[in-house]
Design a protein around this nucleic acid. Structure first.
Length: 516
RNA sequence: GGCGCAUUCGUCUAGGGGUCUAGGAUACUGCCCUCUCAAGGCAGAGACACGGGUUCGAAUCCCGUAUGCGCUACCA
């Protein structure tokens, strides 16, 4: 084989069937999204399929609006599933609570083959057992007592009507080695697998049974999941062996840590260094992060697109992604980098596109109907002014608020905003009075004409632009920081600009009187 | 406690025995540009957890320690 062929072979992968299998017990958070992203990337890279499967076997923790949030989050990032809820597919249903009979059939098969048994201990008895073990200093865990029940004892329990669970008969000695694609071989003592429950007393399976049965039945070839599952992978492999099925490839992804780097990112809002950090996907959406930026960022946590290049398209990521290159060590979500990335994508966007995406956020922030905003002639003028100043979509409202306020809503209580650099209140008021005439006479009323007139006057007065321009920014917006001045005047129009300059001057005259 | 996984600038990462006086990005600092803020340009500071091996040579391989995380449920 030539080198070229060798290279090509190593880059050619058989189509992988991957799945994202969340539990509808809460809202999708960024760690889950990243797991889904990697599974999706791998399926797309190999030209395989990406499956969404809902693992709702815990009825107690089920949360009604969770599934909706899950699907919305995945779609927001552009992770369409080939099979799953709403998409359908040949190996459904894709919601585990609707597969109850399937699991029961396979559990019965395990019992019949001697790989599983019924256990009649109640939850309370189990708790008491663990308590005892802890008191003795033993490792807590089921002691396998019901594994050796006689037919008579079983009959007695059944006659009593005692509820039961089904436990897996784990091998009592030897070791089990599982292979993780990015971590290598992981070996545990079989004895440490203490006959876990595989079918609960409510007739639904536990995760361990359901995941093995479903991954097998659904033809999943590559299991990408969080590293919290490493410990139970030997059990899963035992189950595959008991069923006489081939196990899929296991790829355990590193967890995403919270910003302190100490501990898994919480689903709930947490405070680190006095700052609340975002964790749930819907929070990132609300805050105005772009899916492009989040996609880019998440792809680069635990995997790396390129040593020297930070920005890439989704297609490029698909082309290069390889599970073999995943970094096994956990990492914190780099929030500051997300801010930067979001700004990069905002700046790269066509202004019309940005405007469209901004409307829902502006509507919320300014309390103006989306339909009104869509027709507002000021918006196409404003968007280019704030485009390179935006880190998130949500902060746009605060940057353009002045344009949507009436003149008397502008707040001049912060006199500092009206002061020219190195000028006092009276001098700044004079500046505004001087500029008033320039604005009145600018013809046509464009940013260029205004700027030329202002600069000429600045030179004539022997002032610096910082001194002459600043009072106008304050008069127009009431703020220290605002979009470029002359463009802002054009947005307001000549009449409104003149009113605000007058108002600003009045506020300054008043302030000048008070200080002297 | 037991078992497992991990450990390169503050953070995300490149690197997989010599090309490493360890590369990129972000954040930070300074300078430039500049009507404010941004954006942009330039420069700077900043890391192989520790200790033993193996080797002519280790950030890279092995062992130990430390630290962090995970699992140890009729939760996933």
């Amino acid at each position: 084989m030539s080198d070229l062929e060798g290279t090509m072979m190593s880059e050619l992968h058989a189509p992988a069937r991957t799945r994202f299998a969340p539990s509808p017990t809460g809202y999708l958070h960024l760690g889950g999204l990243r797991t889904a992203l990697f599974a999706w990337l791998w399926a797309r890279h190999t030209n395989g399929q990406f499956i969404l499967r809902i693992e709702d076997t815990d009825q107690n923790r089920y949360q009604e609006d969770s599934l909706d949030d899950l699907m919305r989050g995945l779609r927001w990032l552009g992770l369409e599933w080939d099979e799953g809820p709403e998409a359908g597919g040949p190996v459904g249903p894709y919601i585990q609570s609707r597969r109850r009979e399937i699991y029961q059939r396979y559990v019965q098969q395990l019992i019949d083959d001697g790989y599983a048994y019924r256990s009649y201990m109640s939850a309370e008895e189990l708790d008491a057992l663990r308590e005892e073990q802890r008191a003795r200093g033993d490792a807590p865990g089921y002691d396998r007592r019901d594994r050796y029940l006689t037919p008579e004892q079983i009959a007695a329990y059944e006659a009593e009507g005692r509820p039961s669970v089904v436990r897996f008969s784990a091998p009592l000695e030897g070791k089990t080695t599982v292979h993780d694609l990015i971590r290598g071989d992981i070996t545990v003592e079989n004895e440490s697998v203490r006959d876990p429950v595989i079918l609960k007393s409510d007739g639904l399976p536990t995760y361990h049974l359901a995941v093995v049965v479903d991954d097998h039945l659904m033809g999943v070839t590559d299991v990408l999941r969080g590293e919290e599952w490493i410990s139970s992978t030997p059990l899963h492999q035992m189950l595959y062996a008991a069923f006489d099925w081939d196990a899929p490839r296991f790829i355990h992804l590193p967890v995403i840590l919270d910003p302190s780097g100490q501990g898994k990112m919480s689903k709930r809002k947490k405070v680190v260094d006095g700052h609340e950090y975002l964790a749930q996907v819907h929070e990132f959406i609300d805050a105005g992060y772009l899916p492009e930026a989040v996609f880019n960022l998440l792809t680069n946590v635990g995997w790396n697109f390129d040593a020297e290049r930070e920005i890439f398209t989704r297609e490029e990521a698909i082309e290069r992604f390889d599970v073999a290159d995943i970094n096994p060590s956990p990492g914190a979500l780099p929030y500051a980098k997300l801010e930067w990335l979001n700004g990069v994508y905002i700046r790269d966007m066509a202004p019309a596109e940005l405007q469209a995406r901004l409307i829902p956020y502006l509507s919320r922030g300014l309390d103006i109907a989306e339909s009104d905003l869509a027709q507002d002639p000021r918006l196409p003028l404003l968007v280019p002014l704030i485009q390179e100043r935006l880190k998130t979509l949500a902060e746009a409202a605060e940057k353009v608020e002045w344009a949507f306020q009436s003149a008397d809503e502008i707040d001049y209580s912060n006199t500092k905003a009206l002061l020219g650099k190195k000028l006092d209140a009276a001098q700044s008021a004079d500046v505004l009075a001087t500029g008033y005439d320039l604005i009145e006479n600018a013809e046509p009323f464009t940013a260029d004409v205004l700027e030329q007139a202002f600069r000429a006057k600045t030179d004539e007065l022997g002032l610096k632009a910082g001194s002459f321009f600043s009072p106008f920014r304050g008069a127009l917006t009431g703020k220290m920081v605002a979009p470029p001045l002359f463009d802002s005047m054009v947005v307001l129009g000549r009449d409104e600009t003149l009113i605000r300059v007058r108002n600003g001057e009045a506020a300054l005259r008043k302030a000048a009187l008070e200080t002297t």
